[in-house]
Amino acid sequence: MDQGENSYRLFLQGDDDGLVQIIRDYKDGLILYLNGYVQNLTTAEDLAEETFLKLALRKPRFLANSSFRTWLYAIGRNLALDYRRHNKKREISLEDSPEAILEEMDLERAYINQEEKRAVHRVMKQLKQEYREVLWLVYFEKFNYREAGRIMGRTAHSTETLAYRARRALKAKLIEEGFCYEEL
């Protein structure tokens, strides 16, 4: 049983601290993950909040078929998909404001320890959305292929293949940018 599951159980028993702990543990990672989806940090933050609100209001049952974090990310991803579906026609500015860029950098700094990884994360933005997603889940969040596939609605094999292609695309981009990163 991971920490998230314990906290969620605590919350279901009526202790709001359980939810606070969940938000503390998973907020930043979830925001960065969802930001890869919606390409807007403020929206990603709102979606992360909606994810936690969904837990607080509906109190869905966690069946422990996966880790709590996998389950939580899957909920967040579904909300992000809904958001994108409903806002398909809405014009989205891809140029973030300087404040948003700074905020994102702060968040990166808080969540990603190594400078090299942060640079990789920034280059990842140039990749297509599913590459960004799988790289984030596998490379930064350390999900295995099965778990990442569960979040993305793919099989483990398909996720592995996607991750391989994403890694190659990222390498090419890094070379273009003059980086040499051996971990990939």
């Binding site: 939810l19 606070v20 938000i23 503390r24 907020k27 925001i31 940090l41 933050e45 992360a48 909040e49 936690f52 609100l53 607080a56 905020e103 702060d106 968040l107």
Partner: peptide, 11 residues
């Protein structure tokens, strides 16, 4: 960006 306490309170 909200801190986790702010977000928890809001939620």
């Amino acid at each position: 960006m909200k801190s986790y306490e702010e977000m928890a309170q809001s939620v």
